[in-house]
């Protein structure tokens, strides 16, 4: 079973909650916030094995290319352009879609592997369970492709926790897609609530069951009201406390620093796990 931990707003506490759940449930932990992965600071994994992740991008054989410009004309992402008698590729714009290879009248285009990041696998010295980290090359625009590269290979024997990226764009969708259950982390402020509503739209469209948890909470009245309008009950609340912040600054997994704080969430998740 796969549980994705997401939040529309950044800094709501996805990593705090995902690492804690991985600890409580003895689950594998996948860090799919690939352009800002931070779970390893808390889970302290050891014995890394590494693999490169790639996307396919066009390679133009200059001997066969007649510089007709057809590929550049047809590319909808404007990733190919012709200057003089040479066709160039802008790697940042390429979506690896295959079209240029199809349209090329001389068969000059093949696909080559271009690295987009590294996938590291280790074992947490804190929980003993597996830790997988997606680490996007800095400056790469292919974060979603790296997430998909990892999720398509993901086999969950027991329980797996995915720590997703913030936001409500394609990267979040890619991290939600393999999930059997989604934990939505909400900072109960006007900002967190605004961003959560978009996340809920995505989850509804994808038909994903969810558990909502408030984090860094000073009060939850407004959040509970908004959730009720959506037919959702707030499953658990974690307060805004400087002790928690201090524990995180020391690199502790919050559920190890204070087991009690996760009781509500643990029960809510357990109920959902049992249903499946």
């Amino acid at each position: 079973m796969i549980i994705s931990v997401v939040s529309g707003k950044g800094g709501a506490g996805k990593t705090t909650i995902a690492t804690s759940l991985a600890n409580i449930l003895q689950a594998d932990y996948y860090d799919l916030d690939v352009d800002a992965p931070n779970g390893e600071h808390f889970l302290q994994p050891r014995d890394w094995t590494r693999r490169q992740a790639f996307v396919l991008q066009p390679k133009i054989d200059s001997a066969t290319c007649i510089a007709c410009g057809k590929c550049a004309k047809e590319c909808r992402f404007k990733a190919l352009y012709k200057i003089g008698e040479t066709v160039y590729l802008n790697e940042h714009l390429c979506h690896s879609c295959n079209l240029c290879r199809e349209v090329c009248p001389t068969g000059a285009i093949s696909y080559k592997e271009v690295p987009i990041g590294e996938v590291r696998t280790g074992h947490s010295s804190r929980t003993g369970a597996k830790v997988v980290v997606g680490d996007l090359i800095i400056g790469s625009t292919r974060g979603t492709a790296l997430i998909q590269d990892i999720t398509t290979r993901l086999r969950s024997d027991g329980l797996t926790i995915i720590d997703g990226p913030p936001g409500n764009s394609c990267a979040a969708v890619a991290a939600i897609k393999p999930a059997d259950l989604v934990v939505v982390v909400v900072e109960p402020t006007p900002f967190g609530i605004h961003d959560m509503l978009q996340t809920l739209t995505i989850l509804r469209d994808m038909g994903k069951p969810l558990v909502a948890v408030a984090n860094k909470a000073l009060e939850t009245e407004e959040l509970e009201k908004v959730l009720a309008e959506q037919g959702i009950e707030l499953a658990a609340t974690i307060g805004l406390k400087s002790e928690y912040h201090k524990a995180l600054l020391r690199g502790e997994v919050l559920s190890q620093a204070d087991a009690g704080v996760f009781q509500g969430l643990q029960q809510a998740v357990a109920r959902e796990v049992e249903k499946r």
């Binding site: 950044g10 800094g11 916030d33 690939v34 352009d35 800002a36 931070n38 600071h41 808390f42 940042h92 996007l136 800095i138 400056g139 790469s140 625009t141 292919r142 974060g143 990226p165 913030p166 936001g167 764009s169 990267a171 912040h245 995180l248 600054l249 690199g251």
Partner: peptide, 25 residues
């Protein structure tokens, strides 16, 4: 947030970046 496509799209051609850095790991 982040350092990928959206961040790059927000940065290209600016004159100065103000980084807000949270005191945390």
């Amino acid at each position: 947030p982040g350092t990928s496509c959206q961040a790059i799209s927000s940065l290209t051609g600016v004159d100065l970046v103000l980084v807000v850095l949270e005191e945390s790991l």
